[in-house]
Structures are given as C-alpha cells and as structure tokens.
Computed example of a mutant assay.
Amino acid sequence: MGGTGKGVGSAAADGVGSTLLEILNVKVVGSGDKVVVLSHGFGTDQSAWNRIVPFLQRDHRIVLYDLVCAGSVNPDHFDFRRYTTLDAYVDDLLLILDTLRINRCFFVGHSVSAMIGILATIRRPDLFLKLILLGASPRFLNDWEYHGGFEQAKIERVLGAMEANYDAWVRGFAPLSVGADVPAAVREFSRTLFNMRPDISLFVSRTIFNSDLRGVLCLVRVPCCIVQTARDDTVPLSVVSYLKAHLGGRTTVEILNTEGHLPHLSAPALLAPVLRRALSR
C-alpha cells in the first residue's frame, strides 16, 4: 500500500525532498497498511487535524504536513513568484509522497487542499486510491451558469478588509467561517490565522479566489467522497451538486448535520466516523 523504505532515486532528489519534509514539518503517525494524507486548508496548519487523528491512527498510517503558506512554516520559504497557482502546492505534495516512498494513499483535503488533491490525482492517478474532499470548491466566484457563493465585488471587499486591518478581519472572519457556535474552534482558527504573515495570507487568498478548476474535474478518474456541512457560508450546497455532476471518478456525497466550513475543528466527533467509513470503502 505504501512504505518508507528506500527505493530508487537520485541523491539530489532525495536531498531536495528531505529538505522539503523539514520545511513543511512533515510527520507520519499511526500504524496500519493504509496510508492517509491529511492536508489542511487556508488559514490553518496541520494542527487542524488534532481532533481527527485519534480516530484514525489505530489502523492508518497518517501523513501530516503544513502548506508552505501556513503560519507554522518559516515565511522565508514562501516564494511569491512560485506559488502564484495551485500547481506549485501540487509539486510539494507529490515530492513529499515520493520522498516518503509512498506509492498508494488515500488523500483527505480540506478546502483549497481538496483542489490540490484533485490536481495531484490528475497528474499522478497511480498514487491515489481515493480522494475525500472536505468543504471543496473548484471556483468561488459566481458566473452566469454557476453559483460559487461570491460576487466579484464581495471578493474585493474581503481582500480590501484583509489589507486594511488584518487583525480586525481575522476577528470577523473566524467566527463566520467556523459557523457553528463552538468558541474553542473559533479561538483555534483565529490562532492559526494570526500566525500567518498578513501579506502571505492576502496573496494566497487572491490565488484561491482566482482559481478555476471546473474545466479539469472531468479528468479525475479515482473515486471521490465529497464531505460537506449542511450550511457553509464559504461553499454553498450548489457547489456540491456541481462537483458530483462533473467529477470524472465515481463520486459519493456525505452531508454533515452541522454548519460551518471547518467541521474538523467544530464537530470532529461527527466528521470522524464519516471519514472512517469513506476510508474503509
């Protein structure tokens, strides 16, 4: 299923991969034959999975890492010229898997990481047994035939607020994004948002809002499970229907009876059994 034993690879590639593992704080925990990669979304880091890992680690080997934009990563490693599209994040993910000698895995991606997983599986379908897409959206901007949840004017207001006063923006955005009345989850999300350097946070937000992956969904050939809360101000349920209709692989949908964009923070006991079920199929 996967392994961390030595395989064939150049010393140079190994060196670059090992450096990346260190930069992105890669950890492998748990035991079992199944390898599961947990990839966090914008504004969090791998600690967002802390309440989920105990449910999975007994029978899964779990790979955790931080996106390069996360506040837990030295901001000197964020290259503004390189990370202009999601493809550079895909490069990082694939290099992590190759360096760890993982040849088959399940991938759980939250929000932007769901899209990173989609792009990765199009590029290397051999690596992925299944994608579990949590709070996923191929496009946040509305157009005449598609409801992504945001008009251009609203996106510009969000970016303007981030630029004008990042602290004030975080204090307003965190509870809105968490959605559910779970103060501990709001505090946790606020903490990781505050850890991000504001200029990096703004740059990554622009990258995400400018992304449009609708045209590549049909190229996905591995099974997918879309997991979504019943009410998410960031990703409307119409996006779930769109993903289900346009993903190329066999796709199932799980709607969680809670609200908000971060159920792994706000409702882990509700999300964990759904993940375990998705990973067992």
Rank of each mutant, 00 (worst) to 15 (best):
P223G: 08
R81T: 09
S31R: 14
D59C: 05
F42S: 02
R281W: 05
R191C: 00
R123A: 06
L20T: 00
H261S: 11
T229Q: 05
F150S: 00
I102C: 12
N210W: 00
I62H: 08
A245S: 15
A185E: 00
A230R: 14
V16T: 15
E22I: 00
L93I: 04
G5L: 15
V220S: 05
M1V: 15
F80I: 03
C69T: 14
L270H: 01
G17Q: 13
S47I: 04
N195P: 00
I226H: 02
L94D: 09
R191L: 03
H40N: 15
S72M: 08
I118K: 04
I52M: 06
T192S: 15
L256W: 11
N142G: 02
S10A: 14
S190W: 02
A13C: 09
L64Y: 09
V35N: 13
L202R: 14
N25V: 00
Q46I: 04
G249A: 08
V158D: 11
A278P: 02
V63C: 13
M196S: 07
Y166V: 04
Y146H: 02
L219Y: 07
D212A: 01
D76F: 11
G249H: 08
V239N: 11
F150D: 04
L20S: 05
L134F: 04
Q228S: 13
L159G: 10
V204W: 08
